[in-house]
C-alpha cells in the first residue's frame, strides 16, 4: 500500500493518490499527519505538495514536527521508499532526510508552468522507467523551489550521483539546476516538479508516470 501523508495545508494529496490508484492501479491511502504509526501494509510513503502549516516560519519547517514524521523517519531509516513532492521535498530537507534546502525563487515569482527536465540516472527505484539523459516534461508550481547546498555539500551530492533530475532551463535559481535529489542510500527522493500532475494526456502529458511508475514497479517487484 502506498501511503500519502495528509498534512494540514496539503493540497496535492488526492491528486497523488489518484495517480497511484486510478492511473497506475497501485493501492493507496491517505494517512493523516497525526498518526504516530504508518499502516502496517505500507510499502512506500509519499509526502505531497501543498502549503503545510501555511508555510509558517519556513516551508516544511512545521510539517517536519508532525507526529507522523517520526514513523516516516523510521520507515526511511529501515530502507523503505519515501518520495517528497514540492512541499513534501521541503519537509524532507527540513527533517534532514534529504540534503540541502529550498530557497525563495531567484526572481521572487511564484512559477506555475510545465518545464523540461533531464533524467540523470535510470538505475534508481525512482527513475527506472526513464532513460539516463532522457528529456521529460512535468509541471512545477512553487514560490520556494530553488534548491541550495553549499559547495562542499553539492560536491558530495554530485560525486555520489544523488541528483536524479535537472532543469534543462533553470527557472528558479537552483544550484547546479537541481530539480530532484535523493539520499545517499537511494531510498528517499525529493523533487520540485509534480509528477502527479502529468499522468494523463488530458492533463497535458504523461511523463509523471516515468517517476511514479518507477516507484510502483520497484514496490511491486519487491513483493514478488
Amino acid at each position: 500500500m502506498f501511503a500519502v501523508i495528509q498534512f494540514p495545508g496539503s493540497n496535492d494529496d488526492r491528486d497523488t493518490r489518484f495517480a497511484l490508484k486510478s492511473v497506475l492501479g497501485a493501492p493507496s491511502e491517505l494517512v493523516w499527519h497525526k498518526s504516530v504509526e504508518l499502516p502496517s501494509d505500507t510499502r512506500a510513503v509519499l509526502l505531497p505538495g501543498g502549503f503545510s502549516y501555511g508555510d509558517y516560519l519556513r516551508c516544511g519547517a512545521m510539517g517536519r514536527f508532525s507526529p507522523v514524521m517520526g514513523a516516516v523517519k523510521r520507515f526511511a531509516d529501515a530502507g523503505g521508499p519515501v518520495v517528497g513532492i514540492c512541499n513534501g521535498f521541503q519537509i524532507l530537507c527540513e527533517a534532514g532526510l534529504l540534503p540541502g534546502a529550498l530557497l525563495r525563487n531567484r526572481d521572487l515569482h511564484f512559477i506555475c508552468e510545465t518545464v523540461a527536465l533531464r533524467v540523470e540516472r535510470s538505475d534508481t527505484i525512482f527513475t527506472s522507467r526513464a532513460a539516463a539523459g532522457q528529456r521529460i516534461h512535468i509541471p512545477i508550481k512553487h514560490g520556494e523551489g530553488a534548491w541550495f547546498a553549499e559547495p562542499e555539500l553539492l560536491a558530495r551530492v554530485e560525486e555520489r550521483g544523488q541528483v536524479l533530475l535537472r532543469y534543462c532551463e533553470n527557472p528558479n535559481g537552483a544550484v547546479a539546476d537541481v530539480a530532484g535529489v535523493m539520499n545517499e542510500a537511494g531510498n528517499v527522493f525529493g523533487l520540485m516538479p509534480h509528477p502527479e500532475h502529468a499522468v494523463e494526456p488530458a492533463l497535458g502529458g504523461t511523463d509523471g508516470l516515468l517517476i511514479l511508475g518507477s516507484l510502483v514497479d520497484a514496490v511491486t517487484e519487491g513483493r514478488k
Binding site: L103, R106, E150, G173
Partner: peptide, 11 residues
C-alpha cells in the same frame, strides 16, 4: 552570506 537573498535584493 553565501546564500542569495532575493528579497533583500528587491528591497
Amino acid at each position: 552570506q553565501e546564500v542569495l537573498d532575493p528579497q533583500g535584493k528587491a528591497i
